[in-house]
């Protein structure tokens, strides 16, 4: 099942930070990793990913460096201390949010029964 864009919109940056908290990666690799880890639930397209990466880089949550790969230059992203802090905050926020949503949905279920 694919998640609707609207639902995923608020958590895209969190997901990107989460992936980069594990390893330095380049754009294509990030997309593939997210797809694999979410078992194809999150399919982030390039039009979404790169503006997020560039914005996070400008906010100094990420840094980048270039490497040679397959005969061309490749840009890798690395999470910074600020990025880790942001990730931790967003993650906490997300857990509170999802838990609250879960409780509400659970309550709705009981009412329906």
């Amino acid at each position: 099942m694919k998640i609707s864009k609207e639902l995923a919109k608020g958590s895209n940056a969190l997901i990107v930070l989460s992936v980069l908290a594990r390893n330095d990666m380049y754009g294509y690799q990030i997309i593939k990793t997210i797809e694999n880890m979410s078992e194809d639930v999150f399919v982030m397209n390039e039009g979404t990913l790169y503006p997020i990466l560039h914005a996070l880089e400008q906010e100094e949550c990420l840094t980048s460096y270039w490497c040679e790969a397959e005969g061309r230059r490749r840009k890798y992203y690395k999470i910074t201390e600020k990025g880790l802090k942001r990730f931790s905050e967003k993650e906490k926020e997300w857990r509170v949010f999802s838990s609250a949503v879960g409780k509400v949905l659970g309550g709705a279920e009981i009412v329906r029964v």
């Binding site: 397209n45 390039e46 039009g47 979404t48 790169y50 503006p51 560039h54 914005a55 400008q58």
Partner: peptide, 22 residues
């Protein structure tokens, strides 16, 4: 085609890399 809506991506990129500092 995997880039999705190219006009939208172009707009987003130009906004992120705007001349004017944030």
């Amino acid at each position: 085609n995997s880039l999705g809506d190219r006009a939208k991506l172009r707009m987003k990129l130009s906004a992120v890399h705007s001349y004017i500092p944030k």
